[in-house]
Structure formats: structure tokens, C-alpha cells
Computed example of a mutant assay.
Amino acid sequence: MLTFAAAVFFLIITPGPGVLSTAGVGSGYGLRAGSHYVLGLFLGTNMVALAVVSGLAAVVLADERIRTLLLFASAAYLLYLAFRIAFAGARIAFIEKSKAPGVMGGILLQAINPKAYAVNTTLFTGFAFLPDNPVWEVALKFLVMNAIWIPIHFLWLGAGITLRRLDLPQKTQFAINIAMALSMLAVVALAALAPH
């Protein structure tokens, strides 16, 4: 189970649409709005995990048209975020909207987030530690995953809030924007190159 917990930690903490956008909402809207968004991401990632565990994701994604549609929707959304980040000027502006994305924004992002499906598939189909009791193993995996997922996302939210409060030089702010945009583009590239 320790190997599983380590895999959860490293798969979740690495930059992907969920954690990057969490930092962005924290930077743009603060703790209250960021907490609502994290709640949506939490609900969304658990819905994706349930879809993976139940086999629903495999059934739905077996249809080439649906898989292609979701791939294009997620790539388009991630490219949009990368564009907004890169061309935000010298300000740290992960996400700019007149209204915070909220709970529904978090749920919807996870529904089209290729990393959410990849991570949950990896975690729930691998790292067997109770082969004689798969139901208990899945329940423990949900417990461990969420126990790690929650603090990691609040750390990213805190990072976004902290960046908002810092008075960084314009050159540093621009470098952060570019790094965030490149991270989003890397996620898009990985999703496009992944076997379908």
C-alpha cells in the first residue's frame, strides 16, 4: 500500500490541468472561490475514478468518436488556458474570468481532463495490494487517494494565493506565466501522443 500511496502522491502533485487551474483560481480569486473550485475538482475526480472502477469509462471511451471528441475538447480547453496564461502580460494571471469557475467549473474540468482518466486508470488497475479482496482494495485506494489529493490541491491553491500577494518584478511574473503556459502545452502534447 505504501507503493500505491507514493504513486498517488507523485501522479497528483505533478502539474496537470487540475492543480495548475487550482493555483490559477487561488491567484485570481482567493481562498473562498478557490475552495469552491477545489470542491468541484474533488467531486469531478471521484466521479472519474468511479467511472474507471465501474468500467463505464472503458465502455464510453471504446467509441472512437466519443474518445476523439473528448480529446479535442480537453486539448482545446488546455490550449485556451495556455494561451491566456502566456499572453497575460507581465501580471501573474493563470486564469482571467469575470467570475470564478466555482464547483461546476471544477467538475466539468475533471470530466474532460485527460490526466484525471490516466491517473485514475493507473491507480485503480495497478498497484494491487489485496488481490484476495478487490472490493476492500478499491475502498482503501479511494481513501488513500483522497487523503493525499485534498492536501495537495490546497497546497497548490495556497501557492496561487501566495503568488497573488507577492510583489514580484515584471520579468519574474512574465517568466511564471510562460512556465505555466508551457506546462499546460506539455499536458496537451502528452494527451495527444498517448495511445488511444
Rank of each mutant, 00 (worst) to 15 (best):
P134Q: 02
S21K: 10
T162F: 14
S74T: 10
F87T: 13
A175R: 10
F129G: 00
V8E: 00
V48N: 05
L123S: 01
L155K: 02
T22W: 06
F9H: 03
L20C: 05
A147K: 01
Q173D: 06
A139V: 11
P195C: 02
M1Y: 03
A57F: 02
T172N: 00
N113W: 08
M184K: 05
F127S: 00
M184W: 08
L190R: 09
G126Y: 00
A189D: 09
I152R: 02
S183K: 03
Y37F: 15
V135D: 06
V60T: 11
A62R: 06
L71Q: 14
V52R: 06
L39V: 05
V59G: 05
I12E: 09
W149N: 08
L20G: 03
G26E: 05
G40T: 10
G18T: 06
G160P: 11
K99E: 15
Y37D: 11
F10V: 06
G18I: 03
L185K: 04
D167V: 03
V8I: 04
A111V: 09
I161K: 08
L41G: 11
V188F: 10
I150E: 07
G106N: 03
V60W: 09
L70F: 15
Y29R: 09
D63A: 13
F9G: 03
G26N: 09
L193M: 15
K171I: 05
L130Q: 06
V59C: 04
I107F: 06
Y29H: 14
P195N: 13
A128Q: 07
L190C: 04
V52T: 07
A189I: 14
V103Y: 05
N133Q: 10
S27E: 14
A57W: 01
N133L: 04
L2E: 02
G44V: 05
I66N: 04
F83A: 01
A128T: 09
G40A: 10
F124H: 10
S21L: 14
V53F: 02
L78D: 05
V188A: 11
S183D: 02
K97L: 14
A5R: 01
V135W: 03
L140A: 09
L123T: 01
N120T: 10
T125E: 06
A82K: 10
V135F: 05
M145N: 11
R84M: 08
F42R: 09
E96A: 13
L79S: 14
L157Q: 14
A76L: 15
T68N: 13
I148F: 05
L193W: 13
N46Q: 13
A7K: 04
L71S: 14
L163M: 14
P169S: 02
L39E: 02
M145H: 11
A33T: 07
T122L: 08
G16H: 13
L108W: 01
